[in-house]
Nucleic acid binder design. Structure first.
Lengths: 191, 191
DNA sequence: GTGGTTGTTGCACGAGCGTATAACAAGGGC
DNA sequence: GCCCTTGTTATACGCTCGTGCAACAACCAC
Protein backbone atom coordinates (compact mmCIF):
# COMPACT_ATOMS: atom_id res chain seq x y z
CA UNK A 1 0.00 0.00 0.00
CA UNK A 2 1.11 3.46 -0.84
CA UNK A 3 1.71 5.97 1.90
CA UNK A 4 -0.93 8.58 2.42
CA UNK A 5 -0.21 11.64 0.26
CA UNK A 6 -1.56 15.13 -0.21
CA UNK A 7 -4.37 15.22 -2.80
CA UNK A 8 -2.50 17.45 -5.24
CA UNK A 9 0.62 15.28 -5.03
CA UNK A 10 -1.38 12.12 -5.64
CA UNK A 11 -3.23 13.74 -8.53
CA UNK A 12 0.09 14.75 -10.08
CA UNK A 13 1.39 11.20 -9.72
CA UNK A 14 -1.69 9.80 -11.41
CA UNK A 15 -1.42 12.31 -14.24
CA UNK A 16 2.24 11.42 -14.75
CA UNK A 17 1.38 7.73 -14.75
CA UNK A 18 -1.40 8.32 -17.29
CA UNK A 19 0.98 10.15 -19.61
CA UNK A 20 3.44 7.29 -19.29
CA UNK A 21 0.77 4.70 -20.08
CA UNK A 22 -0.62 6.65 -23.02
CA UNK A 23 2.87 6.99 -24.48
CA UNK A 24 3.77 3.33 -24.09
CA UNK A 25 0.49 1.51 -24.60
CA UNK A 26 -1.65 3.97 -26.52
CA UNK A 27 -5.23 4.91 -25.89
CA UNK A 28 -6.38 1.29 -25.78
CA UNK A 29 -4.16 0.52 -22.80
CA UNK A 30 -5.22 3.48 -20.72
CA UNK A 31 -7.41 1.54 -18.33
CA UNK A 32 -7.95 2.32 -14.69
CA UNK A 33 -6.13 -0.79 -13.56
CA UNK A 34 -3.10 -0.24 -15.80
CA UNK A 35 -2.76 3.41 -14.84
CA UNK A 36 -3.13 2.67 -11.16
CA UNK A 37 -0.53 -0.08 -11.40
CA UNK A 38 1.85 2.32 -13.17
CA UNK A 39 1.37 4.79 -10.34
CA UNK A 40 1.78 2.06 -7.73
CA UNK A 41 -1.62 2.61 -6.16
CA UNK A 42 -4.99 0.92 -6.05
CA UNK A 43 -7.45 1.31 -8.97
CA UNK A 44 -10.04 2.86 -6.70
CA UNK A 45 -7.89 5.95 -6.29
CA UNK A 46 -8.64 7.08 -9.84
CA UNK A 47 -12.33 7.26 -9.11
CA UNK A 48 -11.61 8.86 -5.73
CA UNK A 49 -9.42 11.67 -7.05
CA UNK A 50 -10.83 12.24 -10.52
CA UNK A 51 -14.27 10.68 -10.51
CA UNK A 52 -13.51 8.57 -13.55
CA UNK A 53 -10.97 7.73 -16.18
CA UNK A 54 -12.30 10.29 -18.63
CA UNK A 55 -11.63 13.16 -16.27
CA UNK A 56 -8.13 11.87 -15.54
CA UNK A 57 -7.29 11.75 -19.25
CA UNK A 58 -8.57 15.29 -19.70
CA UNK A 59 -6.37 16.48 -16.84
CA UNK A 60 -3.43 14.69 -18.42
CA UNK A 61 -4.14 16.38 -21.73
CA UNK A 62 -4.04 19.81 -20.11
CA UNK A 63 -0.84 18.94 -18.30
CA UNK A 64 0.95 17.65 -21.40
CA UNK A 65 -0.22 20.61 -23.49
CA UNK A 66 1.05 23.01 -20.83
CA UNK A 67 4.44 21.32 -20.75
CA UNK A 68 4.71 21.53 -24.55
CA UNK A 69 3.90 25.22 -24.37
CA UNK A 70 6.55 25.69 -21.71
CA UNK A 71 9.16 23.92 -23.82
CA UNK A 72 8.38 26.18 -26.78
CA UNK A 73 8.50 29.28 -24.63
CA UNK A 74 11.80 28.18 -23.10
CA UNK A 75 13.26 27.86 -26.59
CA UNK A 76 12.22 31.42 -27.35
CA UNK A 77 13.70 32.71 -24.10
CA UNK A 78 17.10 31.12 -24.64
CA UNK A 79 17.20 32.32 -28.25
CA UNK A 80 18.19 35.85 -27.33
CA UNK A 81 16.99 39.19 -28.57
CA UNK A 82 16.84 38.99 -32.34
CA UNK A 83 13.20 38.71 -33.45
CA UNK A 84 14.20 36.52 -36.37
CA UNK A 85 16.09 34.11 -34.13
CA UNK A 86 13.26 34.03 -31.62
CA UNK A 87 10.77 33.08 -34.34
CA UNK A 88 13.09 30.41 -35.70
CA UNK A 89 13.65 29.02 -32.20
CA UNK A 90 9.91 28.80 -31.57
CA UNK A 91 9.34 26.89 -34.81
CA UNK A 92 12.43 24.67 -34.68
CA UNK A 93 11.71 23.56 -31.13
CA UNK A 94 9.02 21.27 -32.51
CA UNK A 95 11.68 19.18 -34.25
CA UNK A 96 13.93 18.62 -31.25
CA UNK A 97 13.46 16.83 -27.94
CA UNK A 98 11.36 16.82 -25.91
CA UNK A 99 8.71 17.62 -28.52
CA UNK A 100 9.88 15.55 -31.49
CA UNK A 101 9.34 12.35 -29.55
CA UNK A 102 7.41 9.31 -30.78
CA UNK A 103 6.12 8.88 -27.25
CA UNK A 104 4.61 12.36 -27.35
CA UNK A 105 3.04 11.59 -30.72
CA UNK A 106 1.54 8.46 -29.21
CA UNK A 107 0.16 10.56 -26.39
CA UNK A 108 -1.29 13.09 -28.79
CA UNK A 109 -2.90 10.45 -30.98
CA UNK A 110 -4.43 8.90 -27.91
CA UNK A 111 -5.91 12.27 -27.00
CA UNK A 112 -7.29 12.77 -30.48
CA UNK A 113 -8.86 9.38 -30.53
CA UNK A 114 -10.38 9.89 -27.11
CA UNK A 115 -11.53 13.41 -27.98
CA UNK A 116 -13.87 12.14 -30.68
CA UNK A 117 -16.96 12.61 -28.55
CA UNK A 118 -15.72 14.67 -25.63
CA UNK A 119 -16.73 18.31 -25.79
CA UNK A 120 -14.42 19.21 -22.89
CA UNK A 121 -11.36 17.89 -24.64
CA UNK A 122 -12.27 19.39 -28.00
CA UNK A 123 -12.51 22.77 -26.30
CA UNK A 124 -9.16 22.15 -24.63
CA UNK A 125 -7.62 21.29 -27.97
CA UNK A 126 -9.02 24.38 -29.68
CA UNK A 127 -7.72 26.52 -26.81
CA UNK A 128 -4.26 25.01 -27.01
CA UNK A 129 -3.95 25.50 -30.77
CA UNK A 130 -5.31 29.03 -30.60
CA UNK A 131 -2.61 29.81 -28.05
CA UNK A 132 0.06 28.40 -30.33
CA UNK A 133 -1.17 30.47 -33.26
CA UNK A 134 -1.51 33.61 -31.16
CA UNK A 135 2.07 33.32 -29.92
CA UNK A 136 3.16 32.80 -33.50
CA UNK A 137 1.34 35.91 -34.70
CA UNK A 138 3.14 37.99 -32.07
CA UNK A 139 6.52 36.62 -33.17
CA UNK A 140 5.60 37.24 -36.82
CA UNK A 141 4.69 40.81 -35.95
CA UNK A 142 8.08 41.31 -34.31
CA UNK A 143 9.88 40.33 -37.50
CA UNK A 144 7.83 42.83 -39.46
CA UNK A 145 5.02 40.82 -41.03
CA UNK A 146 2.10 43.11 -41.82
CA UNK A 147 -0.81 42.74 -39.42
CA UNK A 148 -3.31 41.73 -42.09
CA UNK A 149 -1.09 38.89 -43.31
CA UNK A 150 -0.15 37.51 -39.90
CA UNK A 151 -3.23 35.37 -39.43
CA UNK A 152 -2.91 33.37 -42.65
CA UNK A 153 0.86 33.12 -42.19
CA UNK A 154 0.32 31.72 -38.69
CA UNK A 155 -2.26 29.26 -39.99
CA UNK A 156 0.13 28.05 -42.65
CA UNK A 157 3.13 27.84 -40.36
CA UNK A 158 1.19 25.99 -37.70
CA UNK A 159 -0.04 23.49 -40.28
CA UNK A 160 3.42 23.11 -41.80
CA UNK A 161 5.12 22.52 -38.45
CA UNK A 162 2.37 20.16 -37.37
CA UNK A 163 2.55 18.14 -40.56
CA UNK A 164 6.33 17.92 -40.45
CA UNK A 165 6.30 16.96 -36.79
CA UNK A 166 3.70 14.29 -37.47
CA UNK A 167 5.65 12.67 -40.28
CA UNK A 168 8.93 13.05 -38.43
CA UNK A 169 7.53 11.02 -35.53
CA UNK A 170 5.45 8.59 -37.62
CA UNK A 171 8.10 7.54 -40.09
CA UNK A 172 11.55 8.83 -39.19
CA UNK A 173 13.95 8.16 -42.02
CA UNK A 174 11.96 9.78 -44.80
CA UNK A 175 13.48 13.10 -43.83
CA UNK A 176 15.49 14.51 -40.93
CA UNK A 177 14.88 17.22 -38.37
CA UNK A 178 17.37 19.35 -40.28
CA UNK A 179 15.24 18.92 -43.42
CA UNK A 180 12.20 20.03 -41.47
CA UNK A 181 13.98 23.12 -40.19
CA UNK A 182 15.09 23.94 -43.73
CA UNK A 183 11.55 23.61 -45.07
CA UNK A 184 10.19 25.86 -42.33
CA UNK A 185 12.98 28.39 -42.88
CA UNK A 186 12.10 28.49 -46.57
CA UNK A 187 8.46 29.14 -45.75
CA UNK A 188 9.36 31.91 -43.31
CA UNK A 189 11.61 33.51 -45.90
CA UNK A 190 8.73 33.47 -48.39
CA UNK A 191 6.37 35.24 -45.97
CA UNK B 1 -29.86 -14.29 -40.92
CA UNK B 2 -28.10 -12.79 -43.87
CA UNK B 3 -28.27 -14.50 -47.24
CA UNK B 4 -25.24 -16.45 -48.28
CA UNK B 5 -22.84 -14.25 -50.24
CA UNK B 6 -19.64 -14.62 -52.21
CA UNK B 7 -16.56 -14.28 -50.00
CA UNK B 8 -15.27 -11.16 -51.75
CA UNK B 9 -18.67 -9.49 -51.54
CA UNK B 10 -18.98 -10.29 -47.83
CA UNK B 11 -15.46 -9.10 -47.19
CA UNK B 12 -16.25 -5.83 -48.96
CA UNK B 13 -19.40 -5.40 -46.85
CA UNK B 14 -17.45 -5.95 -43.65
CA UNK B 15 -14.78 -3.48 -44.73
CA UNK B 16 -17.42 -0.88 -45.52
CA UNK B 17 -19.10 -1.48 -42.17
CA UNK B 18 -15.75 -1.14 -40.39
CA UNK B 19 -15.08 2.19 -42.10
CA UNK B 20 -18.55 3.35 -41.07
CA UNK B 21 -18.02 2.32 -37.45
CA UNK B 22 -14.54 3.85 -37.25
CA UNK B 23 -15.91 7.13 -38.59
CA UNK B 24 -18.88 7.28 -36.24
CA UNK B 25 -17.58 5.66 -33.06
CA UNK B 26 -13.82 5.95 -33.32
CA UNK B 27 -11.25 3.30 -32.62
CA UNK B 28 -12.74 2.44 -29.24
CA UNK B 29 -16.06 1.41 -30.80
CA UNK B 30 -14.58 -0.81 -33.46
CA UNK B 31 -15.44 -4.11 -31.77
CA UNK B 32 -16.35 -7.30 -33.53
CA UNK B 33 -19.92 -7.16 -32.30
CA UNK B 34 -20.48 -3.54 -33.32
CA UNK B 35 -18.96 -4.01 -36.76
CA UNK B 36 -20.92 -7.20 -37.37
CA UNK B 37 -24.14 -5.48 -36.31
CA UNK B 38 -23.40 -2.59 -38.64
CA UNK B 39 -22.95 -5.06 -41.48
CA UNK B 40 -26.09 -6.95 -40.48
CA UNK B 41 -24.29 -10.24 -39.92
CA UNK B 42 -23.20 -12.41 -37.05
CA UNK B 43 -20.00 -11.58 -35.10
CA UNK B 44 -18.50 -14.91 -35.98
CA UNK B 45 -18.19 -13.86 -39.62
CA UNK B 46 -15.37 -11.47 -38.81
CA UNK B 47 -13.24 -14.29 -37.51
CA UNK B 48 -14.32 -16.50 -40.39
CA UNK B 49 -13.41 -14.08 -43.18
CA UNK B 50 -10.53 -12.15 -41.67
CA UNK B 51 -9.25 -14.29 -38.82
CA UNK B 52 -9.55 -11.46 -36.33
CA UNK B 53 -10.43 -7.85 -35.87
CA UNK B 54 -6.89 -6.63 -36.37
CA UNK B 55 -6.73 -8.05 -39.88
CA UNK B 56 -10.10 -6.53 -40.75
CA UNK B 57 -8.96 -3.08 -39.66
CA UNK B 58 -5.79 -3.42 -41.72
CA UNK B 59 -7.84 -4.32 -44.77
CA UNK B 60 -10.08 -1.32 -44.11
CA UNK B 61 -7.04 0.91 -43.89
CA UNK B 62 -5.81 -0.25 -47.28
CA UNK B 63 -9.26 0.24 -48.77
CA UNK B 64 -9.73 3.76 -47.41
CA UNK B 65 -6.21 4.78 -48.43
CA UNK B 66 -6.84 3.47 -51.94
CA UNK B 67 -10.09 5.42 -52.21
CA UNK B 68 -8.36 8.61 -51.08
CA UNK B 69 -5.71 8.07 -53.71
CA UNK B 70 -8.39 7.56 -56.34
CA UNK B 71 -10.15 10.77 -55.35
CA UNK B 72 -6.90 12.72 -55.65
CA UNK B 73 -6.13 11.16 -59.01
CA UNK B 74 -9.63 11.88 -60.27
CA UNK B 75 -9.14 15.54 -59.38
CA UNK B 76 -5.97 15.62 -61.45
CA UNK B 77 -7.67 13.94 -64.41
CA UNK B 78 -10.58 16.37 -64.52
CA UNK B 79 -8.24 19.34 -64.15
CA UNK B 80 -7.19 19.32 -67.77
CA UNK B 81 -3.82 19.66 -69.43
CA UNK B 82 -2.08 22.57 -67.76
CA UNK B 83 0.63 21.24 -65.40
CA UNK B 84 0.03 24.12 -63.02
CA UNK B 85 -3.69 23.42 -62.83
CA UNK B 86 -3.09 19.70 -62.39
CA UNK B 87 -0.78 20.35 -59.44
CA UNK B 88 -3.25 22.76 -57.88
CA UNK B 89 -6.08 20.27 -58.36
CA UNK B 90 -4.08 17.52 -56.68
CA UNK B 91 -3.34 19.72 -53.66
CA UNK B 92 -6.73 21.40 -53.36
CA UNK B 93 -8.60 18.12 -53.50
CA UNK B 94 -7.58 17.54 -49.88
CA UNK B 95 -9.76 20.47 -48.81
CA UNK B 96 -12.96 19.43 -50.55
CA UNK B 97 -15.29 16.45 -50.15
CA UNK B 98 -14.86 13.57 -49.92
CA UNK B 99 -11.45 14.07 -48.33
CA UNK B 100 -12.06 17.10 -46.11
CA UNK B 101 -14.54 15.15 -44.02
CA UNK B 102 -14.52 14.90 -40.22
CA UNK B 103 -15.61 11.30 -40.60
CA UNK B 104 -12.50 10.56 -42.64
CA UNK B 105 -10.36 12.28 -40.03
CA UNK B 106 -11.97 10.09 -37.37
CA UNK B 107 -11.14 7.06 -39.48
CA UNK B 108 -7.56 8.16 -39.90
CA UNK B 109 -7.06 8.88 -36.21
CA UNK B 110 -8.46 5.47 -35.43
CA UNK B 111 -5.90 3.96 -37.78
CA UNK B 112 -3.08 5.90 -36.20
CA UNK B 113 -4.08 4.89 -32.73
CA UNK B 114 -4.40 1.26 -33.75
CA UNK B 115 -1.13 1.35 -35.68
CA UNK B 116 0.89 2.06 -32.54
CA UNK B 117 2.14 -1.50 -32.28
CA UNK B 118 1.22 -3.02 -35.62
CA UNK B 119 4.14 -3.42 -37.99
CA UNK B 120 1.83 -4.30 -40.89
CA UNK B 121 -0.13 -1.08 -40.60
CA UNK B 122 2.95 1.07 -40.11
CA UNK B 123 4.32 -0.34 -43.34
CA UNK B 124 1.00 0.32 -45.04
CA UNK B 125 1.06 3.90 -43.81
CA UNK B 126 4.62 4.49 -44.99
CA UNK B 127 3.73 3.05 -48.39
CA UNK B 128 0.67 5.26 -48.73
CA UNK B 129 2.52 8.45 -47.85
CA UNK B 130 5.44 7.58 -50.08
CA UNK B 131 2.98 7.20 -52.94
CA UNK B 132 1.47 10.60 -52.21
CA UNK B 133 4.88 12.23 -52.16
CA UNK B 134 6.02 10.45 -55.31
CA UNK B 135 2.94 11.61 -57.22
CA UNK B 136 3.59 15.10 -55.96
CA UNK B 137 7.19 15.03 -57.13
CA UNK B 138 6.05 14.08 -60.63
CA UNK B 139 3.57 16.96 -60.70
CA UNK B 140 6.24 19.32 -59.39
CA UNK B 141 8.57 18.20 -62.14
CA UNK B 142 5.91 18.93 -64.74
CA UNK B 143 5.64 22.53 -63.59
CA UNK B 144 9.38 22.92 -63.90
CA UNK B 145 10.74 22.45 -60.39
CA UNK B 146 14.37 21.37 -60.54
CA UNK B 147 14.94 17.69 -59.79
CA UNK B 148 17.16 18.29 -56.79
CA UNK B 149 14.60 20.54 -55.12
CA UNK B 150 11.57 18.35 -55.74
CA UNK B 151 12.04 16.04 -52.78
CA UNK B 152 12.14 18.74 -50.11
CA UNK B 153 9.34 20.63 -51.83
CA UNK B 154 7.21 17.50 -51.80
CA UNK B 155 7.99 16.90 -48.13
CA UNK B 156 6.98 20.44 -47.27
CA UNK B 157 3.84 20.42 -49.38
CA UNK B 158 2.73 17.08 -48.00
CA UNK B 159 3.22 18.33 -44.46
CA UNK B 160 1.47 21.61 -45.18
CA UNK B 161 -1.54 19.96 -46.79
CA UNK B 162 -1.69 17.38 -44.03
CA UNK B 163 -1.53 19.97 -41.29
CA UNK B 164 -4.16 22.16 -42.93
CA UNK B 165 -6.42 19.20 -43.53
CA UNK B 166 -6.02 18.10 -39.92
CA UNK B 167 -6.96 21.47 -38.47
CA UNK B 168 -9.71 21.98 -41.01
CA UNK B 169 -11.38 18.80 -39.84
CA UNK B 170 -10.52 19.12 -36.14
CA UNK B 171 -11.72 22.67 -35.61
CA UNK B 172 -13.59 24.06 -38.58
CA UNK B 173 -14.22 27.74 -38.10
CA UNK B 174 -10.67 28.81 -37.41
CA UNK B 175 -10.10 29.04 -41.14
CA UNK B 176 -11.90 27.96 -44.31
CA UNK B 177 -11.09 25.63 -47.15
CA UNK B 178 -10.52 28.72 -49.30
CA UNK B 179 -7.94 29.93 -46.77
CA UNK B 180 -6.21 26.56 -46.96
CA UNK B 181 -6.11 26.71 -50.76
CA UNK B 182 -4.67 30.23 -50.59
CA UNK B 183 -1.95 29.15 -48.17
CA UNK B 184 -0.99 26.20 -50.36
CA UNK B 185 -1.01 28.38 -53.48
CA UNK B 186 1.34 30.79 -51.74
CA UNK B 187 3.69 27.96 -50.88
CA UNK B 188 3.65 26.64 -54.43
CA UNK B 189 4.37 30.10 -55.77
CA UNK B 190 7.36 30.36 -53.45
CA UNK B 191 8.84 27.06 -54.67
C1' DG C 1 -32.31 -35.44 -56.53
C1' DT C 2 -28.42 -36.18 -53.75
C1' DG C 3 -23.99 -35.24 -51.35
C1' DG C 4 -20.51 -32.29 -50.15
C1' DT C 5 -18.48 -27.88 -49.63
C1' DT C 6 -18.69 -23.85 -47.05
C1' DG C 7 -20.95 -19.48 -45.68
C1' DT C 8 -23.45 -18.43 -41.47
C1' DT C 9 -25.34 -18.49 -36.92
C1' DG C 10 -25.75 -18.72 -31.80
C1' DC C 11 -23.60 -19.75 -27.77
C1' DA C 12 -20.12 -20.46 -24.27
C1' DC C 13 -15.90 -19.31 -22.27
C1' DG C 14 -12.34 -16.61 -19.95
C1' DA C 15 -10.57 -12.14 -19.56
C1' DG C 16 -10.59 -7.30 -18.83
C1' DC C 17 -13.26 -3.26 -18.32
C1' DG C 18 -15.35 0.94 -15.01
C1' DT C 19 -17.22 1.83 -10.87
C1' DA C 20 -19.59 1.46 -6.30
C1' DT C 21 -18.91 0.22 -1.64
C1' DA C 22 -17.43 -1.21 2.90
C1' DA C 23 -13.52 -1.90 5.74
C1' DC C 24 -9.03 -0.20 7.02
C1' DA C 25 -5.48 3.12 8.46
C1' DA C 26 -2.89 7.32 8.65
C1' DG C 27 -2.49 11.85 10.26
C1' DG C 28 -4.08 16.36 12.44
C1' DG C 29 -6.84 19.05 15.99
C1' DC C 30 -7.85 19.10 20.58
C1' DG D 1 -4.01 9.95 23.99
C1' DC D 2 -8.29 10.13 21.57
C1' DC D 3 -11.38 11.10 17.81
C1' DC D 4 -12.59 12.39 13.37
C1' DT D 5 -11.59 13.39 8.82
C1' DT D 6 -10.13 11.36 4.72
C1' DG D 7 -6.74 8.95 1.81
C1' DT D 8 -6.39 4.05 0.54
C1' DT D 9 -7.34 -0.78 -0.32
C1' DA D 10 -9.83 -4.95 -1.55
C1' DT D 11 -13.71 -6.91 -3.24
C1' DA D 12 -17.90 -7.47 -5.93
C1' DC D 13 -21.03 -6.52 -9.63
C1' DG D 14 -22.53 -6.11 -14.32
C1' DC D 15 -20.92 -5.31 -18.63
C1' DT D 16 -18.32 -5.87 -23.16
C1' DC D 17 -14.57 -7.77 -25.23
C1' DG D 18 -12.32 -11.53 -28.82
C1' DT D 19 -12.52 -16.04 -30.11
C1' DG D 20 -13.43 -21.14 -30.60
C1' DC D 21 -16.90 -24.47 -31.64
C1' DA D 22 -20.85 -27.25 -33.00
C1' DA D 23 -24.98 -27.00 -35.52
C1' DC D 24 -27.53 -25.19 -39.43
C1' DA D 25 -28.44 -24.01 -44.25
C1' DA D 26 -27.52 -22.41 -48.83
C1' DC D 27 -25.47 -23.32 -53.08
C1' DC D 28 -22.74 -26.14 -56.52
C1' DA D 29 -21.20 -30.45 -58.76
C1' DC D 30 -22.74 -34.46 -60.47
Amino acid sequence: MSKRAAPEARRAELIAATARVLATRGAAGASVRVIAAAAGVSPGLVTHHFGGVERLVEATYDHVAARVGEALEAAVTTAGESPRERLAAYLDASFAPPIADPALLATWIAFWSLAQGGAAMQASHAHHYAGYRARLEVLLGEVGVAAERRHLAAVGLTALVDGLWLELCLSPGVFTAADARAVVAGYVAAV
